[in-house]
């Protein structure tokens, strides 16, 4: 997914689904590399709906030395995180029924979003979405993938317990 995102130093990135915090930390090492001066650093905001995992991710990110470049927020990521919007890049690490409208809104013109779209329990399609400078949306099919379902307001309507 990191290749598909076309990440560059300085990018502000939103990740929906922090999980362990690993993916967010690899992104941080690309948009805010340890060998580049801090004033050029970008930042990763990563959202996690499951409180225990948000805590797990936060601890991992800190132990790996990325807490200055990765912020873990416990919230319904299907709604994005308007407080820090707009973002240069958005990635969703869970499969959505459709591309959530708030995420499209929170993407910068010229920005790229990578998101798996499809049914629960089947393979999904990885979509790369570009928002043009004049705010048009262009979608591209990157092939089949298998992810856990996105839950929350714009996620799949499945029975779900956070804890």
């Amino acid at each position: 997914m990191n290749e598909a995102l076309e990440l560059e130093v300085g990018h502000k990135v939103l990740e929906v689904g922090a999980g362990s915090g690993w993916h967010a930390s690899t992104i941080a090492e690309i948009v805010a590399p340890s060998d580049v001066s801090k004033d050029r650093w970008g930042h990763v905001f990563t959202l996690e709906i499951i409180p225990k995992l948000a805590e797990f991710a936060r601890r991992n990110v800190e132990q790996a030395g990325y807490s200055d470049r990765v912020t873990v927020i416990c919230c319904d990521g299907s709604e994005g995180y308007p407080k820090e919007a707009p973002y240069d890049r958005i990635l969703v690490t869970a499969a959505a029924p459709d591309i959530p409208a708030p995420l499209k809104e929170q993407l910068k013109p010229g920005g790229v979003m990578v998101i798996p779209v499809g049914d629960v329990g089947f393979y999904q399609t990885l979509i790369r979405l570009r928002k043009t400078e004049d705010n048009r949306i262009v979608e591209e099919d990157l092939g089949g993938v298998a992810f856990v379902p996105l839950v929350g307001k714009y996620g799949h309507r499945i029975k779900w317990r956070y804890y």
Binding site: G19, G21, W22, T26, K52, L53, F56, A64, V148
Partner: peptide, 30 residues
């Protein structure tokens, strides 16, 4: 950024296998 740093202890031996791994709560790491 090796994946092993982000896994529960019982999954660390599998960090370098090219598969998603369980991290608890029914979720996986990529």
């Amino acid at each position: 950024v090796p994946r092993s740093l982000f896994l529960p202890d019982d999954q660390r031996p599998y960090a370098a296998i090219d598969m998603p791994l369980p991290i608890g709560e029914g979720q996986t790491v990529s």
